[in-house]
Write a protein that binds this DNA or RNA. Structure first.
Lengths: 196, 196
DNA sequence: AGCTACCAAGCAAGCGCTTGGTTTGTAAAG
DNA sequence: CTTTACAAACCAAGCGCTTGCTTGGTAGCT
């Protein structure tokens, strides 16, 4: 019966509600410390009923990751399309990933990096393939900026530094503080191309 | 019987060997997926014998974190002492934390951020107190640089971005590649104070 | 009739940890 | 030197509990 706030990009079917609840619990307590009984209770069903929708607990984790990565890959594509210059595209990318990371898909994003190793190796490979499509969007834009002379460092390494900066934000950024997502995005962009 | 490479700053006592083995396993499989039987097997004793040295599995995790944070706090202090200008001190700090993160205390450092929530709340508070001493060293140096006009952003936020950049390195940096720790440190310092 | 969604009950395996006793190293007392 | 004493380090066995998942059946909608 208790209702967990839905995650953007996940529908309202029984399966979808299960996924949102699971993502929330996984982020809170970690995959291993979350029992199938916890997840079931969060949507108001019996633990055994879960396996009518997913064939294993690991499958739930994978589904969470798959949904969030697909949804946010599309968001990145839109961010690039909405920018007219490479610099504008970079700014849009940073904003998009920040929104995903501290905003509407926060839980699932955190779960994806924190509980990665809870996936079996085949599932990891499957998820990695999706992840690479996502990363390629970043590398394209960073490569363009690099060739234009906007920064000197290796684009691959720059992407890693960006991943770190943005990926750490859930641990400190609060949406109800003075600093807005847009301001933080600008700050991060400045770390790449230098301040005005 | 199998020997796990020791972690810098942890001695060779039965307790110390247990800690090094545990840190290694925790990093590999996570705290929850590591059983006390795994840890015992790694140093060649029976699982029950562990509780002669630690009163619980959680205590092992806490001990790992405590040792590594104490050791690296001292390393940061030395880094600051070895720098004559604030900029030199920052560079030394970045090098020191990078060495801790991808070098001689790698396992334990990764465990500290990844398995934080596996600690009970009282233990979390205890660890947080140690962590704050560590962070203050960073904030002192960044504050000095900021007041000197070396960068415009809030020093607290700058530290968070640095934490993210450095904390993510274990996921991609390899010591046997072209990029050295010193070069990477310079690259990261440039993200703070701008390129020459 | 047939499908989706669910319940009630419980099994087998694995978990952290306890227990009672044995070995081993060390060092003072005879 | 040998004996005695004692603590640290460890073993063998297993207890009690939780876990992911299975099973056989039911309710309700189309």
């Amino acid at each position: 019966m208790p209702d967990t706030p839905a995650i953007h990009g996940i529908d309202n079917s029984p399966r979808g509600r299960l996924l949102s609840a699971a993502a929330h619990l996984f982020r809170d307590k970690g995959f291993d410390r979350t029992t199938v009984r916890d997840i079931a209770a969060a949507v108001g069903i019996q633990s055994g009923s879960i396996f009518h929708h997913f064939k294993s607990k690991e499958d739930i984790l994978f589904a969470v990751m798959e949904e969030v990565i697909r949804f946010n890959t599309e968001r990145l594509r839109q961010a690039v399309a909405d920018g007219e210059t490479p610099l504008e595209q970079l700014r849009n990318l940073v904003r998009a990933e920040l929104t995903a990371t501290v905003g509407d898909t926060r839980e699932a994003m955190v779960v994806m990096v924190a509980e990665w190793r809870c996936l079996s190796e085949p599932k990891q490979k499957e998820a990695l393939a999706l992840r690479e499509i996502y990363e390629q969007i970043w590398l394209d834009v960073l490569g363009r900026l690099h060739r234009a002379g906007a920064f000197h460092a290796d684009p691959f390494i720059m992407r890693r530094l960006l991943t770190g900066m943005i990926g750490w934000t859930p641990n400190w950024f609060s949406t109800n503080r003075r600093l807005s997502v847009e301001d933080l995005a600008d700050l991060i962009v400045d770390r790449v191309v230098g301040e005005a």
